[in-house]
């Protein structure tokens, strides 16, 4: 039974802010060890959806199940236990700006493991190297470029080798080469560690490279889901237009 639990399941999730319906009856399963890429125009609720999956937002109705647990019904300690298995890269990176880049990555390790100090530093250093920031351990976040901050945020999200990794626009602010490197990293993490990935992106080539399943959100609903080929043959002109328009640039 526990082997078959879907890592992330949204059941009829609705969320509104005042009069604005952001998620309108969204149901989705994200299978274990697969990468789900979430596409959609700016302001359609992609980030809001990710926030539901770490329990930073609660649905007005419906359920969010992560690793088999209904987040809306969990006690704070139980929620924390689920969150330890989820890595989250915020759209704005959200680094702790009073800590160095390396200490940001070390933060989850210090909080949630009993590793000795040298081991903590070594692991944080490893994760930074993975995202190409090997020489930036001692820098303060304010001294990084936008793209570097994003990568540092990714290193922090991966610090505990979480079972689930949620990534909000990993390639925003990155040049095409670095962006490709990050895509490769995500694919490697998925394949080597069996991590369940959810990636929000506007970058279509990147979506094709990473995504086992692509989900297209439109006006609070899942308009289409499937692999890239399926979305290209979609009956919805908006989906086809979206794939075509951003594919070139």
């Amino acid at each position: 039974m526990s082997g078959e639990v879907v890592p992330i399941r949204l059941e009829r999730v609705r969320k509104r802010f005042g009069r604005l319906k952001v998620l309108d009856d969204v149901s989705l399963d994200m299978p274990r060890g697969e990468a789900t890429v979430v596409l959609g125009r700016s302001g359609t609720g992609k980030s809001v959806m990710l926030r539901h999956i770490v329990g930073l937002m609660a649905p007005d109705s419906g359920r969010v199940l992560v690793l088999g647990q209904d987040l809306t019904r969990l006690s704070p300690p139980a929620l924390a236990a689920v969150r330890r298995q989820v890595g989250f890269l915020f759209q704005n990176a959200a680094l702790f700006d009073s800590l160095t880049v390396g200490e940001n990555v070390a933060f989850p390790l210090r909080r949630h493991t009993r590793l000795p100090e040298p081991e903590v530093r070594a692991r944080a250093q490893d994760k930074l190297a993975l995202v190409g920031l090997a020489r930036d351990y001692e820098k303060m976040p304010a001294a990084l470029s936008g793209g570097m901050r994003k990568r540092a945020g990714l290193a922090r999200a991966m610090a505990l080798d979480p079972a689930i990794l949620l990534v909000d626009e990993p390639s925003a602010g990155l040049d095409p080469i670095t962006s490709e490197e990050i895509d490769d990293l995500l694919v490697r993490v998925k394949e080597e560690l069996g991590t369940t990935l959810v990636v929000v992106t506007h970058n279509i080539p990147s979506a094709r490279r990473i995504g086992d399943t692509l989900v297209f959100l439109y006006e609070g609903r899942v308009l289409e889901r499937g692999d890239a080929a399926r979305l290209e043959r979609s009956g919805h002109p908006i989906v086809r237009q979206f794939l075509a328009s951003e594919a070139g640039g």
Binding site: R83, R84, F88, F90, N92, L95, F96, D97, P108, R111
Partner: peptide, 18 residues
């Protein structure tokens, strides 16, 4: 206030910190 508006408070929560 700055931690709140730059989502660092959310980042703490997401890192399973109260």
């Amino acid at each position: 206030g700055a931690m709140k508006v730059t989502e660092q408070v959310d980042a703490l929560e997401a890192s399973a910190v109260d």
